[in-house]
Design a protein around this nucleic acid. Structure first.
Lengths: 148, 148
DNA sequence: CCTTGACCTCAATTAAGGTTGAGATTTTAT
DNA sequence: ATAAAATCTCAACCTTAATTGAGGTCAAGG
């Protein structure tokens, strides 16, 4: 009965694939130690760490953002109830602002139905504050012109 | 004063990059004609088509989904007020369900704050119906186990 | 001892949504 | 007529979040 567990066990208990777990190590999200044979050995608390990643992904965070959040959790230890409550509230704030954003967008869209303008200068949808939405390199949204 | 305009003009008037517009042509979102020299010539209505793409992207649709939506708009013509009203309502429905989803998630999270369980079986966040969220190849979420 | 099964690394591939650059041609302005 | 600006194609590259495969090693049971 060792304290450390192998990657296959972790995969089984989290539902992640083995390759995903290795990938998360590369991404700096978990830091298993190695045994004499060079195989990864995880702490039981890493299962919760990885569970945390799964939850955070469902909330729409990138691995990069999750790594930041995880830095506030101690390594080598299961998050306490306090840790988790704090992080949960951060998540909640995120969700709040995302809901608010979509709600504003919906309101603008309502004002737009039947208008049919699609004019870059006039259409409220273009002045949306949800540009932050975009991930990765996308179109440079300047949108300052009028359209025929 | 030609009816058709060059790609640079379209770029200027939509805020898109020239390369993005070419990319959208490859993706089947616009179909400019070619002049004798082989250069693209766009209809003025294509500016609105591209504006439509920008709006739809802000609402979180993929280019694939946008292409589907555009198929219900006639090519070679600016969408009428009727067209736009119909599409807007489709968008609105999408937004509605996305807001509902996030709201449910937030409620589950509220129930979770202070719980600290992070147990795969017990945590309500794992039973989230927002799996559809995920785009692209991701982890196979089975999550049927209990955790230390 | 020796065979599985689990594990290792490393490189290539996927998908979306584009960007960047090379090298050639076309269009526009002087 | 000629230079500059715009356009063309095509291929390679970028990011995120992984998967897949090749080729090799480790650990456990009979």
């Amino acid at each position: 009965m060792e304290a450390r567990i192998a990657i296959g066990q972790v995969a089984e208990r989290t539902g992640l694939s083995v390759s995903a777990i290795r990938f998360y190590e590369d991404a700096g999200l978990v830091r298993p130690v190695r045994n004499n044979g060079g195989q990864r050995r995880f702490l039981r608390s890493d299962i919760r760490r990885l569970s945390f990643i799964l939850i955070a992904q469902q909330l729409g965070f990138t691995l990069e953002q999750i790594r930041e959040r995880l830095r506030s959790l101690p390594e080598q230890r299961t998050p306490t109830q306090r840790d988790w409550a704090r992080i949960s509230r951060e998540f909640r704030d995120e969700l709040d602002s995302r809901i608010a954003l979509l709600t504003r967008t919906r309101e603008r869209l309502d004002g737009c139905i039947g208008c049919g303008c699609l004019s870059l200068k006039r259409c409220a949808l273009y002045n949306a504050d949800d540009r932050a939405y975009r991930r990765g390199p996308g179109p440079r949204l300047l949108l300052e012109d009028n359209v025929d």
